[in-house]
Design a protein around this nucleic acid. Sequence first.
DNA 1: CTCGCGAATTAGCTGTAGCTAATCACCGTT
DNA 2: AACGGTGATTAGCTACAGCTAATTCGCGAG
Lengths: 234, 234
Amino acid sequence: MVKPRSRTKVALSRSRGDYLKALYVLAETEPDVAPSRLAARLAVSAPSVTNMLRRLAAEGLVARSRGAGARLTAAGRHEALILVRRHRILEAFLVRVLGLDWSDVHEDAEVLEHHVSDRVLDALDRLMAHPSEDPHGHPIPDRRGRLARRALRPLASLPRGARATVREIRDRDRRRMAAWKQSGLVPGARVRMCDVRALDDVYEVDVEGRRLVTGSEGLDGVLVEPRREGAHER
Amino acid sequence: MVKPRSRTKVALSRSRGDYLKALYVLAETEPDVAPSRLAARLAVSAPSVTNMLRRLAAEGLVARSRGAGARLTAAGRHEALILVRRHRILEAFLVRVLGLDWSDVHEDAEVLEHHVSDRVLDALDRLMAHPSEDPHGHPIPDRRGRLARRALRPLASLPRGARATVREIRDRDRRRMAAWKQSGLVPGARVRMCDVRALDDVYEVDVEGRRLVTGSEGLDGVLVEPRREGAHER
DNA sequence: CTCGCGAATTAGCTGTAGCTAATCACCGTT
DNA sequence: AACGGTGATTAGCTACAGCTAATTCGCGAG
């Protein structure tokens, strides 16, 4: 097909981008990403990972030190963030403009992020007046790939009685996402941790007035920003 | 990568779709499309065309009779029309919603038509209240691939003094398209053929009150619908 | 210090879709 | 009827990105 130029600004292939994004995401929990983790996340075989990492390393996008997995270089991280930006702008568009379901737009954005031109992306961004967050509450990196960093904590980590506001929903499974949406756990929702029984792994959370009782697994991926006591009660 | 299943509804690859669309368009001037014409239009080599036609024939999308070029089967024509529908809906979106330039959206639509899901396409269509034409005046096939056929004629074929309304702008070159836009030759524009000097290949056309003098080449691709004399003067 | 296990890598294939170079086929002249 | 030229096809390669099977590496246990 067409020749994908070397160093120049010619947009990576679908696969390359997916690897970079996965490296970016997985690096959050562990900076050195093992090939096996990449293979699992991308649903490809281990040899495929080895191969692709070799290519990406040759292009200066990832660094590999023997025995210590792979990590993004500055250039690689930049590429990843550009893709994250595209993804989130697209998700915002799909939900806010096209009215598609919040919990269901990931796949479409995943495909389109690799194919939409900068011109179209900018137009989408403009149409929405440059949103700062996607529909799941994730901040959108700016045009240069800079990301506002926020101090959020898992909902399950709130002490009994604490109030907070849901800020981000992190998950790749639309079924769980749909369930959260159902129970009101959406960005902006105000919550209060009513009861924590860590031994039984049971959490009782007040979500905008409705009572949610669930195990910690059912809260995994919901990030909140604690609210001061005495702030305006809803 | 992923396995592109056989007969089932799994959307053709980028290349396959491009061949089908080219066959569809080229068949308008000559039903049997010679491989060389395909090669020229798609900017690929002759052997590549032979190869791809073999594959498409094996899938029942094109028919090849020795010595007589290729033509779409009913199935192939349907696929082509579905792509045409996607393309035109996308162009309409890019212009009407995103405000991109009329003469400049072809390339983006060309890429996106292969990657947008039906769900998103339908949402775009809905957002625009199911447009019947794209920004160049081309009718949009319906969901089943049926296309309203219209009787239009080339602007250059109008006799001296005839009045008409521009309906379609057919061209793949954005420079020419931009030039037409500049001179007012856009779908809906009312024109009158003031003078034809066929020998010198000079045409003088009144476009919404402005005088345009050009050779026939400068009008090629502008299709009009003649207006009755005595219809309401502008 | 060696063994074995699991993770990583190498070897070698598959499929898509492009390419060039070489060959073949048909058609109109002479 | 033979010849040449245009255009189509075959042969054989390249690149990407995946795969399985086989091999190697590194590290902890004995």
